[in-house]
Design a protein around this nucleic acid. Structure first.
Lengths: 169, 169
DNA sequence: GAAGACATGTAATTCGTTACATGATTTC
DNA sequence: GAAATCATGTAACGAATTACATGTCTTC
């Protein structure tokens, strides 16, 4: 199966957040806030918006020189389904979905944090096992010092992320 | 300018670490240790090795059914140059280069840690500025709670990384 | 009237993944 | 002798970046 695309859902989320957006405005969004964790060029955005309109996810209204897009009922449903889909081990997915949660009391927030926590726990355990399997004695550390550093760093990073998630929950 | 490819340097680094490797052995490596921070499929590896041999980075010796590759003088030089090239804001680059450092006393180790520290400092400051610019009052936090969470999380993450780098230096 | 932002589009290129193919050797 | 692993290769496809292209509107 081909890898699941993220861009269409990002566009749905962004348009949904603002009510309606033009292709140009979306490319501006990527230069600002959203740009910290996702990016797309205008040559990707415009054809994607057209495809999404074809598929009935979006409707457009042309005003002056700009074409504005808004979510159809189907678009809302697809966005909701994507938001509720279990997270995979993908750093960006967590950030993106979180970005689309506007309200602290949204029940999805807790779900997301718990999903991420489970993923991070698993990763933490995996890395710990890796460390024990690869670095059985000091000689091994001495002769693969860089590898030892990244592994221990990765573990500390997961630990820090888990602590933060715990704190939020 | 096109984005700098990483794969050829990863192959150089891996082959250099082991002295010589076949395409098949490299794809196995990606299933083990290196696989935690980089991956390539065999359909990428074989043509890339051939290209690198054409360019004089590698030489090959055929034994039984396998073709083993080793670095030429030029290959060593190119790998060294890449290792000494300043880091960019790219999580994987730091891990990869670290992986290729075998010995704790390698002077490149300190250079890498300092480069990464500078990048992380910059990112930390950038994110702090972003937080202050976007979330000027509690209302803003309340109505963009997800965004607020990721931003504060990202800042804490950079902080944790900086602490770790400081500890190592 | 020149420069820069607004606004949208397509074409060419590059890179990576998946799928298709083939043949040898080893192990149950 | 069937299945799994070793070992290498190419073709098809999808997605993203860069470049090419065009036209308006605003501001100095």
């Amino acid at each position: 199966m081909p890898k699941k695309r993220i861009l269409p859902y990002v566009l749905l989320g962004l348009i949904n957040n603002k009510g309606s957006l033009s292709g140009y405005q979306i490319s501006q969004e990527f230069k600002n806030e959203v740009g910290d964790f996702w990016h797309a060029s205008h040559s990707q955005i415009y054809p994607e918006l057209a495809r999404m309109k074809d598929d009935g996810w979006l409707m457009d209204k042309i005003e002056d020189t700009s074409t504005f897009y808004a979510l159809t009922d189907k678009g809302h449903q697809i966005l909701r389904e994507w938001m509720e889909e279990p997270l995979t081990d993908n750093e960006e997915l967590f950030s993106l979905k979180l970005y689309f949660i506007k309200d602290k009391s949204d029940p999805l927030l807790k779900v997301l944090l718990n999903q991420e926590l489970a993923i991070k726990y698993e990763k933490y355990n995996y890395l710990q096992k890796r460390l024990q399997a690869v670095f059985t004695d000091d000689e091994k550390i001495k002769h693969n010092f860089g590898h030892y550093l990244i592994l221990t760093r990765a573990i500390e990073r997961e630990q820090n992320h888990i602590d933060w998630l715990d704190k939020q929950l």
